[in-house]
């Protein structure tokens, strides 16, 4: 093995750690700490296609690089769309970028939500907080290919009404055919919010779907997974039909740096989307 691989000419190996230059085309302030950036590739080369579930490594000049999911699917040459929440120094630097400013992009990396496996089925999307961003492309795709899927249920939990993303789009989803939208918040005053207060799994208990023919896609804080799985079980949804997106520290995004290991998996390469049974026992291990 070593002798054959080592004789490959090193000059033919593309440097996978080198970003390409992109420019902010549009910046939408979603909430106090979250923005959606639309990014256009600088120069002649075409942007790579990004599928729902995948992520790019976004590089803020001189500050650092972080993995950010695509919040819209894009074809080859189309602008990339990322929703970024300011939680650390790099994400804060990215969230400060204004139209016309540049950043580096590597990607896309990771696998995709297995939506194609659920054609003709009901689709349940459960998002917590910023977890709606990686799931928005799933909802959009179902709505674009409306006839290919059954009932669509979107359940979304946020900390506070002021932290809800994509407000206008949520209203469009609510008005879409054969679609149920449930939004709940953890805390509120009674003046600003007339909707449900409580946790997302409660919405699942009341949602309409056919458990045998449903794909459930879940992205949110890891703490949310078990309560949602528990409700799914109560509704007799087979757990092989539950797909979760996981997160760990990530430096290289190509399975070389070691940081994102989760048991046998490299989340960057084998994930970020996993069928729940594949990670169920790992999720029970603390500090894994």
């Amino acid at each position: 093995m070593s002798s054959t691989t080592a004789t490959n000419s090193p000059t033919t190996v593309r440097e996978p750690m080198l970003p390409s230059t992109y420019r902010v085309l549009r910046r939408e302030q979603e909430t106090a700490d979250t923005v959606t950036l639309t990014l256009e590739r600088d120069g002649e080369a075409l942007a790579a296609a990004c599928e729902p579930g995948q992520f790019n490594m976004l590089y803020a000049f001189g500050v650092g690089e972080v993995p950010i999911s695509v919040s819209a699917a894009s074809d080859v040459g189309e602008p990339l769309v990322h929703t970024i929440r300011s939680v650390g120094k790099t994400s804060a630097a990215l969230a400060r970028l204004k139209p016309g400013q540049s950043l580096g992009v590597r990607g896309p990396f990771g696998n995709v939500w297995p939506l194609d496996d659920y054609e003709g089925h009901d689709i349940v999307v459960i998002a917590g907080g910023i977890g709606l961003a990686p799931l928005r492309p799933v909802v959009r795709r179902v709505l674009e290919r409306r006839a290919s899927f059954g009932h669509l249920v979107v359940l979304y939990g946020a900390r506070h009404p002021s932290e809800l993303l994509y407000l206008e789009e949520l209203e469009r989803w609510r008005a879409s055919p054969d679609t149920t939208l449930g939004i709940t918040v953890d805390r509120t005053t009674g003046v600003e919010w007339m909707g449900p207060v409580g946790i997302v799994p409660r919405l699942l208990a009341r949602a309409r779907f056919d458990p045998i023919e449903t794909g459930l896609f879940l992205c949110g804080p890891e703490v949310m997974i078990e309560p949602c799985v528990r409700e799914a079980l109560t509704r007799k949804l087979p757990l092989e039909q539950v797909h979760v997106s996981l997160e760990r520290n990530m430096h290289c995004a190509i399975g070389l740096c070691g940081h994102c290991q989760f048991g046998p998996h490299f989340i960057c390469r084998d994930g970020p989307v996993f069928a729940y049974p594949d990670v169920e026992s790992l999720l029970r291990v603390r500090e894994l």
Partner: peptide
């Protein structure tokens, strides 16, 4: 052992 970290600086 192959783990590495990436550090950006200006």
């Amino acid at each position: 052992c192959f783990c590495s970290k990436i550090e950006d600086s200006s």
